[in-house]
Design a protein around this nucleic acid. Structure first.
Lengths: 229, 229
DNA sequence: TTGACATCGTGTATTTTTTACACCATTGTT
DNA sequence: AACAATGGTGTAAAAAATACACGATGTCAA
């Protein structure tokens, strides 16, 4: 059952840069390719787009098929159209980036994602196609976005400590942040609700747990509020 | 000469949101459609993508064909993939936005752009397809970007006064800005070179002309400099 | 039980940045 | 010569960002 058009058409793919955070370093989820081209190379999860549904839906579908991840933060990044980016034929790729609570993936790894693996940012292997460029673009976007929208919480468990949050910012932005100033600032927005729980871990004082209040953020955003760190 | 594929493929278009500035209001360049669907409606310049070349090249080509504009600031915006966005068939559109020195267009209007017209932002007519959404997205991007990258100069003549620049910021951002604070700030970056010319116009003191120094900006950008207004 | 250890949690003084604000200067016109 | 219209400039007050150190609270081992 073939499909015929008057003019040639490029094939369309979606590719996803999936970010995770293990408490220390920013991580990227990669898939080892089983097929040519770039067989056995690591690559971003993604694949050819079916014609039904939007690209967002296609990206979510691919992500679930290849990594088992569902219900993640997902946002379109950029559309890559270099003529030689796929050796087979003309392929245009709409790239997305996703933010994942690191714990979410381990549990679902049993599904179909046997060949999926997290890589710390500093240890990314050579990637298939132009995926290194896509990753770089995504990283740039994440760094920019983290500074003025509260998306960092997407990378943390629902309950987290301020130190965890600070480590995340430090890992993504690649800077050191002063503890007292950081806490003063993020608490000043009143977007973090202190819980009645603490996180006990190791031989030291337990840390207060917080959760992010997305509803309150939406209300503030309407009024032109900016979350800046 | 038809083209046949194993799986169905969406058609690809590029659409351009072209911004201009007439000294008072932000303007958008629209094309009146000569063909169905949406015949006689106003629409963003754009069209179907040939398979040779990148999307950036396709956008530039369409822009020149439909409006006569060449060598403009052009940047990819977002890829729109709503299932019903084109009534004929499945069409995915990669949108771009362009910043144009308003004077550039008038001169070239004689080419092929008889049915192209500038509309002030406040007087945009109903648009074909989902072009209203695309325009809104572009506007949002322009507002964001103007505040932290010096792209406003793309909308002004090469030589401009500080008042012109301020009017531009006010028009795009929709705010009033204090004259002295604005000048202090933009001059503090040393990115505006005062010329030995003034702009004489009307019965009042002539204004100093400046030009933007893109080379210096590139150097500063390397060092992590941020242009904020 | 007590002391060592490791992280948690907090406040203030200084510097920098942002904001608010008003008048003289220069040109063309009458 | 006076007027009309926009150009160009500085300072004081408020707000935000930065730098910085130590007691608190838990676990664990001796």
């Amino acid at each position: 059952m073939n499909h015929t058009y008057k003019y040639p058409r490029a094939a369309l793919t979606v590719d996803c840069v999936v970010f995770g955070f293990d408490g220390g370093a920013l991580q990227i989820l990669l898939i080892q390719r089983g097929l040519k081209p770039f067989k056995d190379h690591w690559a971003l999860p993604g694949g050819f787009v079916q014609m039904n549904g939007t690209l967002d839906e296609a990206a979510r579908r691919e992500l679930e098929e290849e990594t088992g991840l569902k219900q993640v933060f997902l946002e379109q990044l950029y559309t890559f159209s270099g003529v030689e980016r796929d050796p087979r034929e003309r392929v245009i790729s709409v790239a997305y980036y996703a933010l994942v609570k690191h714990t979410d993936h381990v549990t679902t790894a049993a599904t179909d994602a046997a060949d999926a693996r997290w890589f710390p940012l500093a240890e990314i292997p050579p990637l298939a196609f132009d995926h290194a460029t896509i990753l770089e673009t995504a990283l740039h976007r994440l760094r920019g976005k983290l500074s003025y929208e509260p998306i960092g919480f997407e990378l943390l468990p629902a309950k987290f400590t301020l130190t965890q949050l600070q480590r995340l910012y430090e890992a993504v932005l690649g800077t050191e942040i002063d503890k007292r100033n950081f806490r003063k600032k993020v608490l000043s927005y009143n977007l973090l609700l202190p819980l009645k729980e603490t996180r006990r871990e190791g031989a030291h004082r337990p840390a207060q747990l917080f959760r992010f209040d997305p509803a309150r953020y939406e209300r503030l955003k309407q009024k032109g509020f900016l979350f800046e760190v």
